[in-house]
């Protein structure tokens, strides 16, 4: 792990710890989603820093991270090792799961205000020019899918695991 990765990882751990506190407290959904999105983005960037160059500044983290973890550019042995770290017997099993969960991962990363297309986001009332709704009073369909279905719960656990086990695959 290089020093840049270490810094992004530390921030990811801190964001994730806040997310877990908020998740257990049951505060407004926007806050739980905000911290989950931030934790996911930061662990993604921590991983992408392994090349030694800065990843894009924008919120493109989680999907790119999942794709990078399963990259065909990695050796079979390395992909096997990564799959095992994430509790999959084979890289193909992990790939299948990532494919299944991609819509949720996309939705999560698109909650950031600059990717939300002036619609529902976790921070600011929308639309910007003529606010009609605010995050705190909004019921996010994504949160219901993360909480009420196994694939969603598994994505939450995956993000937490990715942060806890980062040293093993960084």
């Amino acid at each position: 792990m290089n020093k840049e990765q270490k810094l992004w990882w530390e921030q990811a751990k801190s964001d994730c710890a806040v997310f877990v506190l908020l998740r257990r407290a049951g505060v407004h959904e926007c806050h739980m989603l905000h911290y989950l999105q931030m934790a996911a983005e930061k662990i993604s960037k921590a991983y992408l820093w392994r090349s030694g160059t800065a990843p894009p500044r924008s919120h493109v983290g989680l999907m790119r991270f999942l794709q990078a973890l399963l990259s065909r550019g990695l050796s079979r042995k390395e992909r096997q090792r990564i799959a095992k770290i994430f509790d999959y017997a084979r890289p193909e099993d992990m790939t299948a799961w990532v494919r299944q969960v991609s819509p949720l991962a996309h939705e999560l990363q698109n909650l950031a205000p600059d990717l939300s297309n002036n619609g529902p986001n976790t921070e600011y009332p929308w639309p910007h020019e003529n606010p009609a709704q605010c995050p705190a009073l909004h019921s996010f369909a994504l949160w219901a899918r993360l909480r009420d279905a196994e694939p969603g719960r598994r994505l939450v656990k995956f993000i937490e695991k990715a942060i806890q086990r980062f040293e093993q695959y960084a």
Partner: peptide, 18 residues
């Protein structure tokens, strides 16, 4: 029936209607 992977089961908790 759709759970894949080799991890042992673990509970996940959510606070609701704080």
């Amino acid at each position: 029936g759709a759970i894949t992977g080799t991890a042992g089961p673990e509970p996940i908790d959510f606070g609701v209607e704080f």
